[in-house]
Design a protein around this nucleic acid. Structure first.
Lengths: 367, 367
DNA sequence: CCCCGCCACGTTAACGGTTCAGACGTGGGG
DNA sequence: CCCCACGTCTGAACCGTTAACGTGGCGGGG
């Protein structure tokens, strides 16, 4: 005989049913299928529930039985807080949230321990599917997601994992267009700033092996597109300095620009693989009293509001639509024609930060 | 990738155990308590799991059993996407995400249908607790959250619901300080812009009944603090026009300012209950070629980066810390000394948008 | 040699619901 | 009068896992 210390034990479907002298099914129906029982009985059930403090069917138990969690998981390799800092990520999230909202689904931000290979959070997430945003191809969390028997949509990953849908833009083509824009303006001596290319904290010049071996497909493709576009104008890629930055911030872009220009003062254009880095480049230029674009051309990628406000020449990509498409791909999988791929259009925005290349003999003021 | 994603009959702990001829517990232990079984056996289990495509213990079933979901829910009344738009909300989210991350907990954004009273999403959320951010006191979703038998932390709500922790700032005192700052500069004819005060879409002047009956405690308290501070200088609140705006955007602030100044051209200072609205006021001033602060003083509230960059006079509140505190309150509830209340400090930031009141006889250029 | 305790694993009973195939009256049509 | 459809409710079988406790074998102290 157990001592009934459960006086405060929360009521359950079963206890409610016992109290009322009806079956559990009936109580369940009172909540989920009002048409399956008479109105008076339903009222009695609901009344008893209020009296006993029964909070309604437990969502976890329901999920177990129905095999539906009512939420999609979002995996970012970055620290979670990054998602709220980077405007491109924010736009993506907004679109994804929109899609989730429309479908009545929750959005679970899965916590990851960057660097650390603790994937328990992925195993622990009760979700109906995953959206994977901007992670390395060899990320252990990503692998853990693929292990889970739920549908997955990856964003900006070109990999053809079986049964995994994909949404993204053609980074290669977009950057190729940017390269043509620049070579058309006469630029031949170009420097590049890119985001991190692989695991591990590294800041500095990235040689060709590091570029082609990059595990972030987005960065790899943008560099490749740029390379191809420059090659069309006869620019030897081996002579193009590429500087990589681990941190993705305006400060990092500023510092990287300083470093790049110090090592290669003849550069007439700094091409950045993100607007954030480009804003840093602009800040460096302003600090050094270089006029843009007369002394230096700066370009970005993404089309974030802050960059557009600054008149940055960049590639606009529809980040919000990307998020929404990812959500819809995941949530509206009626048919079984998979995997599906959504490639969204990009647009070259020519702002005020790109202009004709300065003459080779003209040097920076102050050098 | 050779992950068999379309296994017809997904393997379970039980089927794995049967296959191996061991008990389910042993398989469970292989995952959760490696020290509870011999290494060779564990290896055998894991090997069989890979062979049968068993993805590891089902998170939902585990949650049901352990009574732990490993996630906290976030309730916002606004559309989910709003959370990624408003910089104050973004800061809060970032702090909350930080706290969750540290605790290894997920963050579930609960979808709400604004206006609609569909609270199923709240019932459906498998979470260990809720954080409620900036909702009306009478919001049905909020009520549904309180129904759920999980701990809850509300942000910026002064209500003393039993057993509910709270984190926030002293809006009343902060705004009182702002009022003193303005009266100290000689301002007596003041106009106010505030965010929505109640349910329903309304834009326009808010009379006193609407102000004191506001169901958004934050707005109510800020107005009350302002009123008290102005009263100290002998300003009759009844003569202070208060304009309310449903939408919280720079555009809305701009339009509201236009409306306010059209009706009350003698106003020397526009006090806004948020930086976003204040940025709109500044934009209106710029458009009308009013110089700030010579022609018009503008103040905000929150201390968002964009406002600080513009030199806005405002009240800075630690939004990130607010989010973090909310998360910690929820996740670190070891002891049972509840309810707890965390009140964070605010700081009056005097920028370049507030100055001495212009003489009463001087009128706007163009009027 | 016996008993005790411990190690390593097994057994049982939840955890809280949903679902599906009926059971049980009831009334209407043939 | 029979049969069947119908509305309403019940019983039992899951869903996949873990907590709590049980058990058998083995080594060692008395």
């Amino acid at each position: 005989m157990r001592v009934p210390r459960d006086v405060r034990r929360p009521a359950t479907l079963a206890s409610l049913a016992a109290e009322l002298g009806v079956s559990r099914t009936t109580v369940s129906n009172a909540y989920n299928r009002p048409d399956q029982l008479s109105a008076p009985l339903r009222a009695r059930v609901l009344e008893a529930a209020r009296r006993l403090g029964y909070p309604g069917p437990d969502p976890v138990a329901r999920s177990l039985r129905t095999r539906r969690a009512g939420a999609v998981g979002l995996l970012l390799t970055e620290a979670l807080s990054y998602a709220f800092r980077d405007p491109a990520a924010t736009g993506f999230l907004e679109g994804l949230a929109l899609a989730c909202e429309r479908a009545g689904s929750g959005l679970l931000l899965v916590p990851v321990s960057p660097e650390l290979a603790d994937v328990t959070a992925v195993h622990q997430a009760g979700v109906d599917g995953f959206v994977v945003y901007s992670v390395r191809e060899d990320d252990p969390h990503f692998k853990a997601v693929l292990q889970r028997p739920v549908p997955t949509v990856v964003c900006d990953q070109p990999i053809g994992v079986e049964g995994v849908d994909r949404v993204g833009v053609d980074d290669h083509a977009a950057m190729l267009g940017m390269a043509r824009h620049l070579t058309g303006l006469g630029h031949r001596r170009i420097g590049v700033l890119c985001m991190r290319l692989g695991s591990g904290r590294y800041d500095g010049p990235a040689d060709e092996a590091r570029q082609t071996g990059a595990t972030y497909p987005v960065q790899r493709n943008r560099l490749a597109g740029l390379r191809e576009g420059l090659a069309e104008a006869g620019v030897d890629w081996a002579a193009v300095p590429v500087h990589e930055r681990f941190a993705h911030s305006v400060d990092a872009g500023q510092a990287a620009t300083a470093e790049l220009l110090a090592a290669h003062p003849d550069v007439t254009a700094v091409v950045c693989t993100s607007d954030i880095l480009a804003l840093g480049a602009l800040r460096h230029a302003a600090e050094r009293k270089l006029s843009v674009p007369e002394d230096l051309t700066v370009t970005g990628f993404d089309g974030v509001p802050e960059g557009l406000r600054a008149g940055l020449t960049t590639v606009r990509q529809p980040v919000l639509e990307k998020g929404r498409a990812a959500g819809e791909l995941l949530l509206e999988r009626d048919e079984r024609n998979r995997p599906r791929v959504v490639t969204l259009p990009t647009e070259l925005i020519v702002g005020v930060t790109s202009g004709r290349a300065r003459a080779p003999e003209r040097w920076f003021p102050g050098w």
